[in-house]
């Protein structure tokens, strides 16, 4: 990438002290995302997706220890003072969580929350802020937005609440939106509508977006690049079409195979991944996927494979025995 990235995560690790010992939730992650691009982050529950997004936002639990750098728009967020950080988070860096109630205040009306955000960050007067709120609620597909301003979050359905959370996140025209499983708690029909809404707004505003999910199906048609995470690390990263056509990591392959396919015959056995992810307080020697990997052999049990480029520099993977690699190209 010649253009400097909008966000660049450099060697970021997150450690959490737990009664069972130190838990490394995020392990030496490097990631870049350019302005206006979309990045999907995919992985099983507990692999560190939320901790990574919290590390980017500087919203980690108090006891967490962060190392590395998070460069956003020319500034290192890790070293930014709290006041500037707070301004940045409301303005150019926005987030939508899985549970919209995490970002909404239950005792304030939708209108108050939107208007306050707009007034604080865009310095609009109250009439302009109200007018803009109605416009935003309309844009995220909320019928009768005028009346909704008066309602409290609990008076809305889950899908509507997520739309409001998105409206608030978009209200200050952020440069980057982090959406952490924005549709996992919603029904399929609502899920499709919310994902479309995010994609539409992302394109329209030329905003960069990180879409976090455990479902490879969700990122397939909706992102430019995908990073697959396992046990706190990025284990494969590629432009989305490349990843799906020619994945190199056995874990990516297994994750895709395990999804029930709509065109599969009924009662066809699913290729499940045996076992489960390692306990993050008990680091595994060698490749952390080795206990579950059907290609594991020799070196996999002794050394940790590092993320390295394949034939093309923008496709990287961490594996000693990659699949579908053209002979001779890879060491």
């Amino acid at each position: 990438m010649t253009e400097p990235a909008l966000l660049s995560v450099k060697n970021v690790s997150v450690d959490l002290p737990t009664p069972r010992g130190n838990l490394r939730a995020v392990d030496q992650i490097d990631l870049n995302i350019g302005a206006g691009r979309t990045l999907g982050i995919v992985g099983e529950s507990g692999c560190g997706k939320t901790m990574l997004s919290r590390a980017i936002l500087q919203l980690l639990p108090k006891k967490a220890k962060l190392s590395g750098r998070v460069m956003f728009d020319g500034q290192d967020l890790v070293r930014l003072d709290p006041e500037r950080l707070r301004k940045l988070r409301g303005r150019s860096l926005a987030v939508v969580f899985q549970d919209p109630m995490t970002s909404l205040n239950p005792v304030l009306t939708i209108g108050t929350q939107l208007i306050e955000t707009l007034q604080e960050h865009l310095e609009l007067d109250s009439v302009a802020a109200k007018w803009r709120s109605v416009e935003l609620l309309g844009a995220v597909g909320i019928p009768a937005p005028q009346q909704r301003l008066m309602q409290y979050p609990h008076q809305l359905s889950g899908g509507m609440r997520q739309r409001v959370a998105i409206a608030i996140a978009l209200s200050c025209e952020p440069k980057l939106l982090i959406a952490d499983e924005p549709t996992t708690a919603l029904d399929v029909t609502i899920q499709a509508q919310i994902l479309d809404l995010l994609a539409r707004e992302q394109r329209r505003r030329h905003m960069a977006m990180i879409l976090i999910t455990h479902d490879l199906g969700v990122v397939a048609g909706r992102t430019d690049d995908v990073a697959v995470m396992y046990a706190g690390r990025v284990v494969e990263r590629a432009p989305t079409p490349v990843l799906f056509k020619k994945m190199h990591m056995p874990y990516t392959e297994a994750l895709l195979a395990a999804i029930p396919k709509i065109d599969a015959a009924p009662h066809a056995p699913l290729p499940a991944i045996s076992g489960r992810p390692p306990d993050p307080t008990r680091p595994i020697q060698g490749c952390s996927f080795s206990p579950r990997c059907r290609y594991a052999a020799g070196r996999c049990y002794r050394e940790k494979p590092l993320l390295a480029a394949s034939e093309s520099p923008d496709h990287q993977y961490a594996c000693f025995h990659p699949i579908q690699v053209t002979a001779g190209v890879c060491a």
């Binding site: 399929v188 029909t189 199906g217």
Partner: peptide
């Protein structure tokens, strides 16, 4: 509608802009 809304793990299958069917 339910079938259409299922995310397909294939980037060549661009998700059809869902009809805004409400809730």
């Amino acid at each position: 509608l339910l079938i259409e809304a299922i995310p397909v793990p294939d980037p060549d299958v661009r998700p059809a802009e869902s009809v805004p069917v409400g809730e």
